Computed example of a mutant assay.
Amino acid sequence: MAEIEIDGGPADPARLAALGLLNYGHFTTLRAESGRARGLALHLDRLVRDCRTVFGAELDPAEVRARIRRVLPADGAPVIVRVTVFDPALGLERPAAPATPHLLVTTRPAPAAAPGPLRVRTTAYRRELPEVKHVGLFGLLHQRRLAQLDGYDDALLLDGAGRLAEGATWNLALHDGRALVWPDTDAALPGVTAALLARAHPGPQRREALAPDGLDRFVAAVAVNAGAGVRPIAAIDGTSFDPAHPAVAELRAAYEGVPGDEI
Rank of each mutant, 00 (worst) to 15 (best):
R199Q: 14
H175G: 05
L164Q: 10
A32C: 10
R145W: 14
W170N: 08
F55I: 09
R36L: 07
A235K: 08
P78G: 00
G35Q: 02
T169S: 15
A89I: 13
R108Y: 09
D216Q: 13
R36I: 05
A2M: 11
L164G: 07
V71E: 05
M1E: 10
M1H: 12
A62I: 09
P95A: 06
H142V: 14
F218T: 03
A187M: 14
A155F: 10
A57D: 01
T122I: 08
L156Y: 01
P98C: 01
R207E: 15
G116F: 00
A161T: 15
A188M: 13
R82I: 02
P10C: 05
L251W: 04
W170I: 04
G39L: 00
A99H: 09
V54Y: 07
N171R: 02
I68L: 03
P202A: 11
V54P: 10
R199S: 11
E166Q: 07
A254P: 01
T122P: 07
L42P: 06
P117E: 02
G9H: 14
L172K: 00
D184K: 15
A200R: 04
A179N: 08
A168F: 02
D153G: 04
L215C: 10
D50W: 01
P88V: 10
T239S: 09
V224P: 06
A198R: 13
G39E: 05
E128G: 14
R108T: 15
